[in-house]
Amino acid sequence: MTLKAGGALALLLLAPLRAFAAGWNKAAFGSKSIADALKALGAAGPADTKDIVIEAPQIAENGAVVPIEVTSNVPGTQSLAVLIEKNPFPLAAKFDFPEGALPYVRVNVKMGESSNVRVVVGAGGKFFTAVREVKVTIGGCGG
């Protein structure tokens, strides 16, 4: 194999990795409490805000599919994390918005039991949070 071909092959192998530049935060997703997860995300001690709108059913009949819709009105929102307080591993999802997307997401999550759903938003190195309670009739993690 020539050097040039080797270089091209290396580029080919690296290409799929570039699609996932952010990596997966194993420490945060492996945390068993919201406090530990936030620490691992570098977002410990967020301030309460009314500028995060969480839409979710008050009562979810099926914990396997609970739609959570989040809009951040915090100026300069760069990231948004969704945490389910009573799930074994609370951090469910984290989204970074490098540029061009609105700080909005809708995602379906599993909830093992009734729980607070907490959203933490990062903006300019500061962190803000809001919470919403969802009651679950039938849990959706095991079974």
């Binding site: 609970v66 389910i84 951090l91 999802a93 918005f97 997307a101 909005y104 997401v105 809708r106």
Partner: peptide, 19 residues
């Protein structure tokens, strides 16, 4: 425009909306 990290807490056959 969006980089997402998700866990096993996201429902089977994940459905997302972005704007």
């Amino acid at each position: 425009v969006i980089e997402g990290q998700i866990s096993q807490s996201v429902s089977r056959n994940p459905l997302f909306s972005f704007r």
